[in-house]
């Protein structure tokens, strides 16, 4: 479902959203505000998701805990 190439899919989606935000922003005095805010918001959110995803793509350490109950160990 989510593999390494997902970041590019995400990028395409976010790019599409940015384009949509550029063209669909309501006209008038606040158009610039709408465009800038939406696009920066999309890019910021993508950046954070991208970082989170990439950090887990090839993890260097594994989770370790000693309080796992037997029922959940094989989940």
């Amino acid at each position: 479902m989510a593999q390494g190439y997902s970041v590019f899919i995400g990028l395409v989606i976010v790019a599409a959203m940015c384009v949509a935000a550029w063209f669909l922003s309501p006209k008038g005095e606040n158009q610039t505000t709408w465009r800038s805010s939406l696009i920066i918001a999309f890019i910021s959110c993508y950046l954070m998701w991208f970082v989170t995803f990439m950090a887990q793509l090839h993890p260097l350490i594994e989770p370790r805990r000693s309080d796992v109950r037997a029922e959940f160990a094989h989940e």
Partner: peptide, 24 residues
């Protein structure tokens, strides 16, 4: 103590994997 291992090439799609929560 138990350590985790990756299931496959599947990666947690959105946010931080919950398996990390409460680990040492």
């Amino acid at each position: 103590a138990l350590t985790g291992q990756l299931k496959s090439s599947y990666r947690y799609p959105f946010g931080l994997d919950w398996r990390w929560h409460g680990t040492e």
